[in-house]
Write a protein that binds this DNA or RNA. Structure first.
Length: 928
RNA sequence: GCGAGAAUAUCUAAGUGGCCAACAGAGGCAGACUCAAGAUCUGUUCCCGUAGGGGUUCGCAGGUUCGACUCCUGCUUCUCGCACCA
């Protein structure tokens, strides 16, 4: 007999599967699924495992259902992160080296080569493929590619040609977070600090100071009329610099920033902050004012000079108050210019006093500033003499006016500081030129995408709102980069196509990926792809035969049926790909994506998995330690795909025991030779419902639900079945068929064990391609199920009574309800109004004669009907079973169970008081 | 802050108006088998109960209803996304 040895099963299966899942167009109906391909910059952990195992289970399911399934895989290697990694490794960065050497266990000689970024991705791509195979993924590896393959680049160029011609690729300028040391834009993941910081657009209000300007940054240009003074920090070093040919006075830091934002900056001299104090400046809209000293002014915030509006800005109000309390600048009065209900004459003063704030250092100052800012913006109105407009209108008007007439310019700055790059340098805002964008803001393009989304199947359905919102909110996307790996941007070969933008229609490329390897990439002109994917004929196409084969393959597979991905890609990749499909396959509705399945995230021992924090469990280790099937079953069974799941080693271990139990059970019962009993009909009937429910669950991608049915559902039934068998019998020969069905239902989840057991069962070919079990309505036996239900409930009741009374019984009597109670049962069950039905019943002469007994019974039966599930009540009314037959035929079983003689009597004939409580489907039980 | 989702017994988790003291699994406890361990099987796992019953529960506070884990309102807590990047 076969011993349970997962690693032996795995070895067996891998041999058989070597090329089994290479899938070509055939006469069968196709089913094409794909997953967001991985960026292999590190080892796979168990969280990745689920991402690829879910689609594999789905692929295996549909394959058994008789579809021609395509499940390809490739590797996304374009982008900047590995470049950073290789630089850090070259610099011998301890943290990075520890991660790669200790956690990912990269051998030293390989690690040495990681100074070349491509080596990193190639190394891990190979590892991914190895681990994916170890997990039993049924991937067609012939179609594997990486996104820097020359042929793929040609494909991307073709794709972009279409985007460009459709007018979706535009050129512009763009403020980005920028590191002056790395000379690169900085993404969230490259930040040590300030990852929440947003770039905000300030208006610089230009105050005249002698022959120079002092620019102050404000978000509230409309308050210019209320400016009473400027603030300068006496201990800060300012500079006089020629900015675009004019003299400006700003902080040293600001000068550096302005240079990054489209200004020519030449520093002429340094000026101490203290020298500026008490000097006069002027602005046409507020006249001449004085520069006052203030320590709160941050030289790293915008220009390092601040305009003061004490009537509307709490900070300004308090700073001024403090100076005045020290006896200085007594003649300056706040100038209110905005009326906002509930904040008195001078809002800043009102709010500060109401909050009881004593000085500038109070921690509530930021919140208070925000409060006034919002209140005035949403409800405030300028005084009549300043135009009387609502703040939200006036703000833009004044800003425009100042830009036009009074030399105001825009300056970008972060709302939260500091923002620090991983290299340790302060990040600044830089305006990038020659920056290209994908115009996702285009309403017409958005419309196409929304229309397509309406026709797509989204799993789970709740994610639809998120997609809709994303389409709505998407702005132009900067789609070119200066560093990283990738395809050159065709209209500016100094730049690369940004990595999210080069992975949006590659699902189409999979259909031809294995064939295109036969062609020299030099031949791959746009015309070639136009022919393969769009059917556009043109002169002089090379290798026509090969192209025709590719065209045919594309037509067979496309569009894809489902794309799988984790939910964090909704707001970018998953939505982008629809945009791109809509353009590349414009006018070809039948080539647009059909559905998406979105996953939840993975936890490890209750905490988020994170490579950088070391909170990961490598998938390869998991497979080695527990076996591929165990890992698969655990990941599929612990939660539905879209829910978050938690990996815990101790739970995984018990999963392995379950698989072993399953294997052993099948081996034990598969060759049973006994004659079939009544109970076999029950088992067969139950099996049909498990088949139906498992199939339905998998149709809906509910892996957990499917496992519950196919696994525990059948196991529980089998336990009852074996309990019900006569002592000398260990099962009928029909169990062989049950095993065959059972193993096939579980094969998508535990294919290694499945393949092995299939062989043991003498199944034909590979189980991976065996027919999925079909429900056989002929075998559904409602009566048998009902009888067993009655029996099981009665046994349960007997057990619970036995436990309560704690005597050792000498005999058990089961008293069956009389026929008239069955009649009452049927009447009540069918009545629409359960309240008045009792009266109806009592109209009957026979019933009335029974008097109180009948009304009591009617009440009890009403309660009973409420408590019984509909699948019992329904059949009981339509086609009642004979309770006597059920118990008589199970008498042997009952006596065996209870170990005492069992008597079956009619309640009214027994004469026992307790017997009178007998109800339909709930006989009285008398224990003596 | 904005947007989306979630909160059920020791844990995972099913449950969209009466089938609910609440599926299933894991874990715990007890028993059987065994020299023992493991595996397996049986029972038990909110509280009370010597006849199948009763009581109190499904984040918190209210509400709708004959009836709510399920619907509504408010609150609290958690997770995810908020972009120039995989």
């Amino acid at each position: 007999m076969s011993q349970f040895d997962l690693s032996a099963f795995e070895e067996e299966a891998h041999e058989k599967w070597a090329h089994a899942f290479e899938s070509n167009p055939s006469r069968l109906e196709k089913f094409y699924i794909n997953v967001a391909f991985p960026y292999p910059s590190g080892a796979m952990h168990v969280g990745h495992g689920r991402t690829y195992i879910v689609p594999d289970v789905v692929a295996r399911f549909w394959r058994m259902k008789g579809k021609q399934v395509l499940f390809p895989m490739a590797f996304h290697v374009t982008g900047a992160p590995v470049v950073g990694i290789s630089k850090r490794i070259a610099k011998k960065d301890e943290k990075t080296i520890r991660l790669y050497r200790d956690l990912y266990r990269v051998p030293q000689n390989v690690l040495d080569e990681f100074v070349d970024p491509l080596t990193i991705v190639k190394h891990f791509a190979a590892e991914y493929q190895r681990v994916m195979t170890a997990c039993g993924l049924s991937i067609d590896w012939r179609r594997r590619f990486i996104t820097v393959d020359p042929s793929y680049s040609k494909f991307i160029e073709w794709q972009w040609k279409h985007l460009y011609e459709a007018g979706h690729v535009i050129k512009g300028a763009h403020p980005v977070r920028y590191c002056t040391v790395d000379e690169n834009p900085v993404g969230d993941h490259d930040l040590l600090e300030g990852d929440k910081a947003e770039v905000i657009k300030f208006t610089l209000v230009m105050f005249r100071y002698g022959d120079a300007f002092i620019p102050t940054a404000t978000l509230r240009p409309e308050t210019i009329h209320g400016v009473t003074n400027l603030w300068a920090n006496p201990s800060v070093t300012y500079v006089k610099a020629m900015v675009d040919g004019k003299a400006w006075i700003v902080s040293k830091e600001a000068a550096e920033k302005l240079a990054l934002q489209d200004h020519t900056v030449e520093i002429r001299e340094e000026i101490k902050g203290s020298e500026l104090v008490d000097k006069k400046v002027s602005h046409p809209l507020c006249g001449e004012i004085t520069i006052l000293p203030a320590e709160f002014v941050d030289p790293d915030m915008a220009t390092g000079m601040v305009m003061s509006v004490p009537a509307h800005a709490p900070f300004d109000y308090i700073a001024l108050r403090d100076l005045q309390q020290a006896g200085r600048y007594k003649d300056i009065k706040p100038i209110p210019l905005i009326r906002v209900e509930g904040y008195g004459e001078v809002p800043a003063q009102f709010a500060v006093e109401k909050a009881g704030i004593k000085n500038q250092m109070d921690s509530r100052m930021d919140a208070l500033t925000q409060e006034i800012y919002s209140a005035e913006f949403s409800k405030g109105k300028l005084f009549e003499k300043y135009g009387g407009k609502p703040v939200r209108v006036a703000r833009d008007d004044v800003a425009a006016l100042m830009t036009e007439k009074y030399d105001s310019v825009v300056m970008y700055e972060f709302d939260v500081r500091p923002v620090v790059c991983r290299c340790g340098n302060r990040v600044k805002v830089k305006i990038l030129h020659d920056q290209w964008f994908l115009k996702y803001s285009d309403p017409a393009w958005k419309q196409e995408v929304s229309d397509q989304l309406k026709d797509m199947t989204l799993v789970p359905p709740e994610v639809r709102v998120e997609f809709d919102r994303t389409v709505d909110w998407l702005k132009d996307w900067a789609c070119t980069r200066r560093v990283g790996l990738g395809t050159k941007f065709p209209w500016d070969t100094q730049q690369l196509i940004e990595p999210l933008s080069d992975s949006t229609v590659y699902m189409a490329y999979y259909t031809i990926a294995h064939r295109i390897k036969d062609l020299d990439s030099k031949l791959l002109t746009p015309a070639v792809f136009d022919y393969i994917f769009l059917g556009k004929k043109s002169e002089d196409l090379p290798e026509k035969k090969k192209l025709d084969a590719m065209r045919e393959e594309f037509l067979y597979w496309y569009p894809y049926d489902f794309r799988f991905s984790a939910k964090d890609l909704i707001s970018n990749h998953l939505t982008f790909q629809i945009f791109h499909h809509c353009t590349v396959f414009a006018g070809q509705k039948d080539k647009l994506p059909k559905g998406m399945v979105v996953f939840g995230m993975g936890l490890l021992n209750g905490a988020k998995m994170s490579s950088s924090k070391g909170n990961v469990f490598l998938l390869e280790d998991a497979v080695k330690e527990f076996g591929g099937d165990t890992v698969r079953m655990f990941l599929m069974g612990s939660a539905e795909p879209w829910q978050d799941f938690d990996w815990r080693n101790e739970l995984v271990l018990s999963t392995k025991k379950q698989i072993e139990r399953f294997h052993n059970t099948v081996m034990e019962i598969k060759d049973a030779t006994g004659e079939p009993h009544d109970i076999d009909r029950w088992l067969a009937s139950r099996l049909q419902s498990h088949i139906a429910k498992t199939t339905e669950a998998l149709d809906n991608f509910q892996t957990r639900q499917a496992l519950q049915e196919a696994w525990f559902g059948i196991e529980t039934d089998l336990k009852w079945y074996r309990r019900r068998l006569p002592k000398d019998c260990d099962g009928s020969r029909e169990l062989h068929e049950l095993c065959s069905v059972w193993v096939r239902l579980l094969a998508p989840f535990i294919p290694f064990t499945g393949e092995h057991l299939w062989k043991e069962l003498a199944g034909e070919g590979l189980i991976s391609f065996a027919p999925w079990p079909k429900m056989d309505a002929q075998q559904v036996n409602e009566k048998a199920e009902l009888s067993e239900e009655l029996l099981a409930r009665t046994v349960e009741d007997v057990e619970s009574i036995k436990k309560l009374i704690q005597i050792s019984p000498k005999a058990i009597t089961i008293a069956l309800a009389p026929e008239w109670k069955h009649e009452v049962f049927r009447t009540i069950a069918q009545a629409s109004d359960k309240n008045s039905v009792v009266k109806e019943i009592m109209k009957d002469e026979k019933m009335r004669k029974r008097g109180r007994e009948a009304t009591d019974a009617a009440k009890q039966i009403t309660t009973l009907i409420h408590r019984l599930p509909p699948y019992v009540v329904g059949p009981l009314v339509q086609d009642p079973i004979s309770e006597r037959d059920v118990f008589e035929s199970a008498k042997g079983f009952l006596e065996q169970e209870f170990g005492v003689p069992v008597h079956i009597v009619e309640a009214e004939a027994s004469g026992h008081v307790k017997a009178l409580t007998a109800l339909p489907f709930k006989p009285s039980i008398i224990i003596e």
